[in-house]
Write a protein that binds this DNA or RNA. Sequence first.
DNA 1: CCGTGTGTGGCACTTGGTGTCAAGACGCTC
DNA 2: GAGCGTCTTGACACCAAGTGCCACACACGG
Lengths: 214, 214
Amino acid sequence: MSSHPEASLAQRKRQLVSNELTEAALQLLALKGFDAVTIDEIVATAGVSKRTFFRYFASKEDVVVQFLADMGTGMHAELAARPAEERPSVALQHAVWVSMAACGDPSEKALRVVQLILRTPALHARFLERQAQWRDDLTTELARRLELDPDTDLYPQLAAGMALTAFGAVLQRWSGSDGAEDPAELTDRAFAVIAPALDAVEGRASSGHTPHGA
Amino acid sequence: MSSHPEASLAQRKRQLVSNELTEAALQLLALKGFDAVTIDEIVATAGVSKRTFFRYFASKEDVVVQFLADMGTGMHAELAARPAEERPSVALQHAVWVSMAACGDPSEKALRVVQLILRTPALHARFLERQAQWRDDLTTELARRLELDPDTDLYPQLAAGMALTAFGAVLQRWSGSDGAEDPAELTDRAFAVIAPALDAVEGRASSGHTPHGA
DNA sequence: CCGTGTGTGGCACTTGGTGTCAAGACGCTC
DNA sequence: GAGCGTCTTGACACCAAGTGCCACACACGG
């Protein structure tokens, strides 16, 4: 069988171990709290060695934060996929929205993970750091869309930051209500607040490009 | 002299040790980088035991982040001191500005510290977490000023988040330019971008929370 | 002079995280 | 099927971060 059915066997095995590890970790962490669970417990549950754990995750925090990594890439991808003429507020809202959708999609496990992150300082810190990377990605993408120089113009970075601020607020409300509040409606309300800054033209670029008015 | 001249002797001794520790730590960290410096080196330089270090700082990151703790309290205090009728964008800009001023005030050491934080992931994460606490403070203060309920209204939290986004962007540019760029002008430019959202009235739902479907 | 309280150092210990090495599983070629 | 390179794993040693514990030194008040 030298055929390549999408992914090599080795890669699928890697994925399997990774899943086993995250599964064991998330269950234990959600049950006993972040600090009360040691790596040795996790690896014992998953049936691998401690050394193997650190070949898959850079740190104990990583196994949790990694679980939400798709949100960042999805956000960036969605923004890149939006039509170029779309108003920044609309494009960014869609980008944030797909991340929230990906979050609630698989199950309510994402809810537990988000709650765990927001209530654990160490995890929250790592999560914010991850978000900062997402923000940089959104910044460059936004600058490309609007043909602005992100080094001289503050708008792309600030717009990306505002979108992630809205994202964070939505996440917090959503997790705080145990998933009862509608993510879509929360996203709408959040972007209603920040949209005036996202779409205002006077905030951007001195030299008069960006001829496409609202 | 059994009088109490502002602070007891014991407390001043505590402050002395704390200063010695931060001094030693910041010098070593700025010189060799965060990961390359061990706590043992720091305490050896400061002339205290490792155990004492952790009586003053909760973690290795803390000794750096603590150095900027005044910025957060100053920000909150300034916002509380602004006249209640002032537009949110103006009040928040002043709040951010005093933090930047306190940053550049003592010396250019603050610049080195900020650069160290922004380029060290572990420190950056802790710093963002600290900022999140500042954001909560600003949120409640903002809600009080505008007589809004921060639990139902998204505006206070988002406004505080936007202000801190601007703050972060200013800090990054300022440190990225080695202090060459003028913090005041950067702050002006940043708030010019976000002000439309901060001062827009339709973003806030004083009564009857904006009904609209997703 | 003697209790008391507080700050400190020293030490053992747990835990997160890394470097290294030998052994096993897999794929490939002959 | 034998041999060979590659990749993954587990085991061990090791370092650094952080904590608990206890004994000691010093200041203070009776």
